[in-house]
């Protein structure tokens, strides 16, 4: 992280421009502490706790990627399940080649990003809402192509090989750590990406795309980078899903439901804030666990809350937090502080 740049604030007449506040530095330290605590969890709690946390981490990873795509890149996709599926199948394929499935998750991220290049060439021809449905069609194409492959199990899917010689406890702990790493990397990648050049370009685009283009901002490249990163993250998350479930089924792994989860989490948590998906995923996860006995009602409730948020609370829960307290855990913008007030 480029902390040296931030510790030298530019002072100009009673104001100074800086990215972080004291609050956000404490928040960041708190987050690091939480991560360390979470990493130690398999030594402390029952496996049922860690295994349900895997679901939460997967949701955080996916939602962070969707937030990056839609909240910062302006590309609302309903087709990210394409990369969840591709990532999942990459782990299956890698295992067939003798690659350890946990390593396969990294391969899955890489391969998803590679496939995202030609996909973006097509999808970027669409704008706005049409991009959304177009990406969904592309995800369907990937599903239908996978189904045609017998070695990948066709329409009924396959079991994951290569983990059978691992003990149950060790495997569960390893899956938990893999999920945690993927979630942390996804959140951190978004943070670092947005603090850099890409983030600056995207902010310019968000304010005024035509002006940004006229000022020489390479909008398409910035968007493409975001799209590739988002694909990689969703691919890794898909890999975790398969490692966790030990099997794959094309309809489930390519289901638009993944996009629904991502969208609901981000919209409720707060679109365009890196903290939003974290908060939203916790809310989503809590509701899912709490209403587990009532069928799909949790999804109906979440749909209602998400649609209502989109209309009446467009900046989500974290938007409310920022509005009330000004707290930013991940300061990607700049803030103006008065220095003459003691």
């Amino acid at each position: 992280m480029s902390t040296t740049r931030e510790t030298a604030p530019r002072v100009s007449g009673g104001f100074r421009v800086r990215r972080d506040s004291r609050l956000s530095r404490y928040g960041m330290l708190g987050l690091v502490a939480v991560c360390i605590g979470l990493a130690g969890l398999p030594y402390v709690v029952y496996e049922s706790v860690t295994s349900s946390l895997v679901t939460l981490f997967v949701l955080i990873a996916m939602a962070s990627m969707w937030n990056l795509l839609a909240g910062f890149g302006g590309m609302a996709s309903i087709g990210q399940q394409a990369y969840v599926g591709i990532g999942g199948y990459t782990v299956i394929w890698a295992a067939d080649q003798g690659i350890n499935p946990f390593l396969g998750i990294a391969v899955a991220a890489l391969f998803s990003a590679v496939l995202a290049v030609p996909t973006s060439l097509l999808a970027f021809r669409l704008r706005g809402d049409y991009f959304a449905v177009g990406t969904w069609v592309i995800a369907e194409v990937y599903r239908l192509l996978v189904i045609k492959s017998d070695s990948l199990g066709g329409p009924s899917g396959r079991a994951l090989t290569g983990l059978s010689d691992m003990g149950l406890t060790a495997r569960n702990a390893a899956t938990y750590w893999a999920a945690l790493v993927v979630a942390v990397v996804c959140v951190a990648a978004g943070y670092l990406l947005l603090r850099g050049r890409v983030g600056l370009s995207l902010t310019a685009v968000r304010d005024d795309e035509i002006a940004a283009r006229a000022a020489g901002v390479d909008v398409t490249t910035a968007k493409r980078i975001v799209y590739l990163v988002s694909a990689a993250g969703c691919g890794a998350a898909g890999g975790v899903v398969v490692v966790d479930a030990l099997s794959i089924q094309p309809t489930a792994i390519f289901s638009v439901q993944w996009s629904a989860y991502m969208i609901f989490i981000v919209v409720i948590g707060g679109i365009g804030y890196l903290e939003g998906p974290l908060l939203g995923a916790v809310v989503f996860f809590a509701l899912q666990q709490y209403l587990a006995d009532y069928g799909t009602w949790y999804l109906i409730l979440l749909g209602v809350v998400a649609a209502a948020s989109a209309v009446w609370m467009p900046r989500g829960l974290w938007g409310q937090v920022v509005h009330r307290t000004g707290l930013r855990l991940f300061p990607v913008g700049y803030r103006l502080d008065r220095t003459d007030q003691q």
Partner: peptide
């Protein structure tokens, strides 16, 4: 109509939410 004035993503999110709601209510 309300979603039309809540930013460019709002109608997309609202109609997508409606889609999920309708499918699951029908299922119930």
């Amino acid at each position: 109509q309300r979603s039309l004035s809540s930013g460019p993503l709002a109608t997309l999110l609202v109609t997508f939410g409606l889609s999920v709601i309708l499918q699951n209510v029908l299922q119930e």
